[in-house]
Simulated assay, not measured.
Amino acid sequence: MRREGLAVLIILVSLLAMTLVGVAVVSPIGAQSPDAAADRVVSVEATGGASAVPDRAAVRVRAVAEGDDPGAVRDELAAETDTLRSNFERLGLSEDDYGTDEYRVRSPRVPPRESENVPAFRGVHGFEVTLEDPDRVGAVVDAAADADVEVDTIEFTLSDAVRTDLREEAIANAMSDARAQADAIARNGDLHVTSAASVDATQRNVSPVRYEAAAMATPTPESADTSVETGDVAVEYAVEVTYNATA
């Protein structure tokens, strides 16, 4: 019985050895991936961009008052801002849509020789209005003008969701340009690009459409409502990519 068991064991070991030999024969000897064979690198810099119509806006306005009595300056600011709030309420804006971003009453700093015609106190009460509908910017500008409040800046920008989509599109465009550059360089150097070895994509720019007060056009008498062109908001991404390459 022991001899029969030993014979069966020898047969099993022999079959296992034959199986291992068969595997070794099927596998190509000395095979390696393109990346393992790469012995060169190609480094490039590229920039990709994307743009979209803005879906958010911010309008900064400020009431300004001047005088020799700080109390009178504060009262004038309060009157102007009360009118402004009433105008905003008529537009359907709530206090969640706007808030104070600046308030001060102080003596202006001017050189002594220019101080004769400068009031003793100057007060500013600034608000920032955020809008989910950029088409309402003109109405906010008119509401400020009706309250004798200055419009400081208008900025058209993007919601987080749209900005994320544009960022991904900009990155894809940057990486596509980087690969095209690397392939062109490799062809001219008798090389073949295999894959990306490292990517640095730390530089990102978002360029909102911004209007300063001095650049805003004054509404004409023929037009009762102010209209502001939105333009497109641009997102830009820069990448530095190093590719593996082989001769």
Rank of each mutant, 00 (worst) to 15 (best):
E236W: 11
V206S: 05
T202P: 06
T220H: 13
A201E: 13
V53G: 12
G123T: 02
N244K: 08
T81K: 03
G99H: 03
G67S: 10
R60N: 02
V44E: 01
V64P: 08
G126Q: 04
A78M: 01
V26F: 05
E4K: 15
R204A: 12
H192C: 05
L158S: 00
A180W: 10
A186R: 09
D146N: 10
D190K: 14
T47M: 13
V8F: 08
A147H: 03
M175A: 08
T157R: 07
V23K: 12
F88P: 00
V129C: 03
D190L: 15
R163I: 00
V129L: 04
A46I: 02
S14I: 08
S51Y: 10
R74Y: 01
T100M: 13
A184H: 00
S223A: 15
N87Q: 09
P119K: 07
N87G: 06
A247C: 06
E222T: 11
A213V: 10
N173D: 15
P111G: 12
V105H: 01
Y98T: 07
A72R: 05
S207C: 10
A143I: 07
V26H: 10
V73S: 01
V26S: 05
G189R: 12
D68L: 02
V199A: 02
A196Q: 05
A161I: 13
L12E: 08
T230Q: 10
T194N: 07
D68G: 15
